[in-house]
């Protein structure tokens, strides 16, 4: 589909520590112990990057810019996004371990973004480490833009309008339209992020990344709006984090690992000619006591 105009998309991404890694809690930082953690792009943000790249590829015009705030290691996250196909990357380097609440993060981002050209701002719906889901919405507020959260389907109908399906509870969808520029925070179901090719990854390693020090933005920093009082470890549920039971079949174990320990949904498929199909469905409904016998 041709969107007509140039689409410049900015995606804000976060490097997260993986949640399954049980490294313990450090009371002094009120956070999990960082030693031995593994980091990755927040999967929701990765979906946002993928969507931005698809928009660019479809329109054939415009650029995708990714921004992150984080310590020097967060550069890996930007490199991954560049390998996926983002054109520019901005790294707002934050040294030190002090926590920063969503409002502070949003104000740093907004301060930077307001100087940039864009038609669309994409965020992940939430980060899988702290599950706040606020930054995108705050940025919209600070920039005076409309915001739509939990975007499960995004269609740019013309140059300045988007048709959106939001995912609600229990699989329900809400359809809204929204003028752009706007802020959208996306669901993981929006798309399936690509696995970057080798040439793209190689090229991404040497692409320039614009680095900004956090000090530059200190002036614009507002006070944190909330403070973390305590972080409590979950009650131990060993089954969920242990390796799969060796009594399961290999296939079941693979499935276990792949799905993060979720059991397979029960279900069946009826086959045959129309008559058999009908009987099959009726039998099923009877069995489930949906209809009387």
């Amino acid at each position: 589909m041709d969107y007509g105009g140039v689409m410049n998309v900015i995606v804000c991404v976060k490097q997260v520590a993986h949640i399954y890694i049980q490294s313990g809690f450090d009371p002094s930082t009120k956070d999990i112990v960082t030693d031995g953690l593994v980091y990755r792009v927040n999967p929701y943000d990765e979906t946002a990057v993928e969507e931005a790249i698809r928009i660019k590829e479809k329109s054939g015009k415009g650029e995708v810019t990714v921004i992150t705030i984080g310590p020097p290691r967060a550069e890996e996250t930007l490199r991954w996004c560049l390998a996926m196909g983002a054109d520019n990357a901005v790294h707002i380097v934050k040294d030190g371990a002090e926590k920063q609440d969503p409002w502070m993060t949003a104000s740093i981002l907004a301060d930077r973004i307001k100087e940039m050209e864009y038609d669309l701002l994409l965020f992940g719906k939430k980060a899988i480490d702290d599950e706040m889901g606020q930054v995108g919405i705050f940025v919209a507020e600070l920039l005076g833009l409309p915001a739509v959260s939990a975007v499960a389907k995004l269609e740019l109908t013309d140059v300045n309008k988007a048709l959106i399906q939001r995912s609600l509870e229990k699989g329900n969808r809400e359809e809204v339209d929204c003028p752009i520029p706007a802020v959208f925070t996306v669901e993981k179901t929006l798309n399936r992020p690509r696995y970057p090719t080798f040439p793209a990854r190689k090229a991404a390693r040497t692409k320039p990344i614009q680095q900004l020090r956090v000090t530059r933005m200190d002036e614009s920093l507002s006070d944190p709006q909330m403070n973390i009082v305590r972080l409590a470890p979950p009650k131990l549920r060993p089954k969920k984090i242990l390796s799969p039971d060796s009594n399961l079949s290999a296939a079941a174990r693979i499935n276990f690992v792949m799905t993060g320990g979720m059991g397979q949904k029960k279900g069946g498929v009826v086959g045959g000619d129309p008559k058999q199909l009908v009987t099959g469905i009726i039998d099923f409904l009877k069995e489930k006591k949906v209809i009387g016998t």
Binding site: I21, G36, Y39, Y195, I241, V257, M258
Partner: peptide
């Protein structure tokens, strides 16, 4: 399926996706 395995190997350092801590 292979893509999932690649991501796990690269991020966690093992195909099981458990990570060094475990």
């Amino acid at each position: 399926e292979i893509e999932q395995a690649y991501r796990k190997m690269e991020i966690y350092g093992d195909i099981w996706g458990m990570g060094a801590a475990l």
